[in-house]
Write a protein that binds this DNA or RNA. Structure first.
Lengths: 186, 186
DNA sequence: CACGATACGGAGTGAGCGTTCCGGTTGTCA
DNA sequence: TGACAACCGGAACGCTCACTCCGTATCGTG
């Protein structure tokens, strides 16, 4: 890895770019022009490209940072006394936070389905699965779901939340579905 | 309204454009270049614009046509013997069909939230509500939801289906949530 | 302080795409 | 069949935007 120690101004500008990108991507998603990010950061477009090879790379850096925060939160709940409550609290919190962040919505909902995008946020994925499995073992969540399924359901919940924001009872429909015992229904 | 009777070739080309647009939009959504649609239809770009004022208008025409089909299907089920079964059958069918059509996904999921887009597909909206209310009256669906809520849930289900296609059990989670009696849960 | 390396800004480049324009073509009707 | 209006194709235009280039400014070191 190359870490030739950045010059002081370079390090500062890098941080500014990252902060500006986080704000801009969160508000408008990947569609925000890179020049806008540069202006918001108070630097030129060239400077952005010295720190990140492409707009896409900058986007992924921002998203990854956020996903690592989610992963950390999941880690804290990994051995809570009540696995069911921990799971549902976490689920609701992720939905609420992520729905306010368009970058996260777009990154999670990316229709790639597999391959490269699946590797991003591996830790988040793993911690989410751990939370799920513990809740299932405790009988709080139906057992016909795995981590990938849950991820898909999160994407769905995000779509619902984005479509009609603040509808608390809609997410509850999903939560009730998660609680349902396996095998029911026609 | 102006219907000055189109010339025979104009009418034929209009139909070709519509068919090509339906196919292209269904596959790639609004992002497909208009030139591609024109080429697929075997006409020039100018011809497309003689029939539709903008790419957006063409898109909406395609979407509206499809939504009217959905509305018609809902109308047929409006007085089925079993309101609950009618509702769930319809819901599952719409999800399956719409998830294969990226144009519909984008149109329904458009984040406008209200104003103009809300008016598109009014009939679909109304028939959907009718189906829902009948199922609720029959005790087959929880009663803390209205037509708009259901629409949001459809958008969510579409996101799930698009994210991991063919996962039959994921939609079932949502359906189980819809069946759940109101007032349960922490 | 002076000098080389590093980093900066922002104009410039090229590609993609929606939309328009117009010279040529084709349908229609007397 | 002739002539006019309606229609067609696709080149051209204008705009946006990711990305590059290079003359200039700044940092860090001896």
């Amino acid at each position: 890895m190359d870490k030739p120690v950045l010059r002081a101004d370079a390090r500062r500008n890098r941080a500014r770019v990252l902060a500006a990108a986080e704000e801009a991507f969160a508000a408008d998603g990947l569609s925000v022009p890179l020049d806008d990010i540069a202006r918001l950061a108070g630097v030129g477009a060239g400077t952005v490209y010295r720190h990140f090879p492409s707009k896409e790379a900058l986007f992924q850096a921002v998203v990854l940072e956020r996903l690592e925060q989610f992963a950390a939160e999941a880690r804290e709940l990994a051995d809570a006394e009540d696995p069911g409550a921990a799971f549902y609290d976490y689920f609701a919190r992720v939905i609420k936070q992520a729905s306010l962040n368009r970058a996260i919505c777009e990154a999670l909902g990316a229709t790639t389905g597999s391959t490269d995008k699946a590797e991003i946020g591996t830790e988040f994925r793993a911690n989410l699965s751990a939370l799920l499995e513990r809740a299932q073992a405790a009988g709080a969540v139906r057992t016909d779901l795995d981590g990938d399924d849950l991820r898909a359901l999160i994407v769905g919940a995000l779509a619902v939340e984005r479509y009609s924001p603040g509808s608390h009872h809609l997410v509850r429909v999903l939560l009730d579905g998660l609680r349902t015992v396996t095998g029911a229904g026609s």
